[in-house]
Each structure stands twice: as C-alpha cells, then as structure tokens.
C-alpha cells in the first residue's frame, strides 16, 4: 500500500518523538543553565540564542563563554575547538552508511550530529515501515530546538530563575548509560566496549578531565586497528 508523503512524515515524527523526551529534559536543564551563565557573565540573550543554533555543541559553548571574556586569541580558540569536538569524527565514520542516499536532509543531519543525537540515531530500532531519513531528521531537529529554546529562555530570564532542581543534569548520564546497555546487549562480543572503557579510564587518570578525550580516541584507534584480525575473526560486532 502506498503511503502519502504526509503520512510518511507524520509516522516518522510520531516514532521519533518518544526517543527525544529524555533529551528534552536534559537539554532544557543544561540549555537554561547555559543561558543563565551567559546572562550573568554580561552577555545579551542574543548570544546564547545564536550560539546554540550555529555551534550546537554543549560543552564547547560553555567554554566559549570564558573564551569570549578573555583577550582575543583566534588560533587558541580554533585549536581548542578541534580538541573538544574531535569525537565527532568518530560519529561521522559510524554514520557513513546510515546517512547514504538521504538527499537534502543529509547536510542538516551532519550539521546537527551532537553526542545525544548521534547516540539515538545510531542505536534506535526504527520499524520497517518508518522512513529512516525522516526519523533521523526529526530526532536531529527536535534536539536542536530543545537546546535552542533552553538557551534562549536562560538568556532571557537570567538570574530570575531559582534553581531547586539539583541533580537533574543526571538525566543525560542516565541516557548514555541506557544507550550503552542497549549496545552492550546487542553485541556478540564486547572487545570494542572494553577497549573504549579501559582507554578512557587510563587516559582520564593520566591526562585529567579537561584533556583526556583526544588521547582516548588515539588509544581506541590504535587498539581497534591492532586487533582488527581477531575482532573480524569473531564475526564482527553486531
């Protein structure tokens, strides 16, 4: 049976929305906090609004506040950005196949490929009769809107908001734990998961919380390349 385009879009939206609910909670909390932080740092609400749309990367945006308050240092800003955001390279490699033949949507899907959107789009089990392209599109768009609206509200209301929601930011950690579990339960063996975990912990201890991501990524790449033969012998991951 042929579905009309409107039905296809609606179906994709309805199946994508529930996946984004935890991200809504997390992004509003963090986004509002970010907007308030910019507001009390002396920036107009226009800054968090624009930055949340065009940069769209939580941790970098927080650090960008202190970079905007320091003396102008373009090279340092650029290098810092690459270091913080380097993990996106991995997301792109993982999504190469899934984003094939997505037409005009592909540009936006890549533009909005943040940690949370990647995690949902990579692991979600999309039903056969749901259009994958529109599903990815709505997850990306909704997440983007949550982050933007949170940042805008925080920037506008500033320190008027009284926080009595201590601990709500755990929602993001809880989501990553669930996504990790789903991946773990799907895998035939856990070579990759252990490699990622051990590299991460070792580099965190060695390099500290602010600069362990890039060394971790290098470690993961070296280990996965080194053990390619045995891993492929086991018949791949999933």
């Amino acid at each position: 049976m042929q579905q009309s385009k409107k039905e296809i879009i609606k179906k994709a939206f309805v199946s994508a929305f529930p996946y984004t609910i935890p991200i809504f909670a997390g992004f509003w909390f963090l986004g509002i906090a970010y907007g308030i932080y910019m507001n009390v740092s002396g920036f107009s609400f226009v800054y968090p609004m624009i930055m949340s749309i065009v940069i769209y990367g939580g941790s970098l945006e927080f650090i960008a506040v202190s970079m905007l308050l320091s003396p102008f240092a373009p090279v340092q800003v650029f290098v810092m950005t690459l270091m913080i955001q380097a993990r996106h390279l991995f997301y792109g490699i993982a999504m190469l196949d899934k984003f094939k033949n997505m037409g005009w949507k592909k540009f936006y899907l890549i533009f909005g490929l943040c940690d949370e959107t990647f995690s949902i789009n990579y692991t979600a089990e999309i039903a056969e009769d749901v259009d994958r392209g529109w599903f990815y599109f709505f997850v990306t768009l909704l997440d983007h809107l949550y982050w933007f609206s949170g940042a805008a509200i925080g920037g506008l209301l500033g320190n008027l908001i009284q926080f009595n929601t201590e601990g709500l930011d755990f929602v993001m950690i809880a989501m990553f734990v669930v996504i990790f579990l789903e991946q773990w339960l799907k895998e035939k063996h856990h070579f990759s998961a252990w490699i990622g975990f051990i590299s991460g912990v070792a580099c965190l201890v060695l390099f500290g919380g602010d600069s362990f991501l890039v060394p971790t990524m290098i470690c993961i790449l070296v280990c996965l390349s080194w053990f390619r033969k045995p891993i492929e012998k086991e018949g791949g991951i999933v």
């Binding site: 995690s119 950690i173 990759s192 252990w194 590299s199 991460g200 965190l204 996965l224 492929e232 991951i237």
Partner: peptide, 20 residues
C-alpha cells in the same frame, strides 16, 4: 574505514560514559 564504522560505536559509548 568500514571496519571502523562497525566497531567504533561500541568503544564510543564506553568513552561517553567515562566522559560523563
């Protein structure tokens, strides 16, 4: 790269947990 695309996510999700 196809191999990396398949095996990286497992490592990425562990890395994100450590990141959190």
């Amino acid at each position: 790269i196809q191999y990396l695309g398949k095996v990286l996510p497992g490592a990425i999700f562990s890395m994100l947990i450590v990141y959190c």
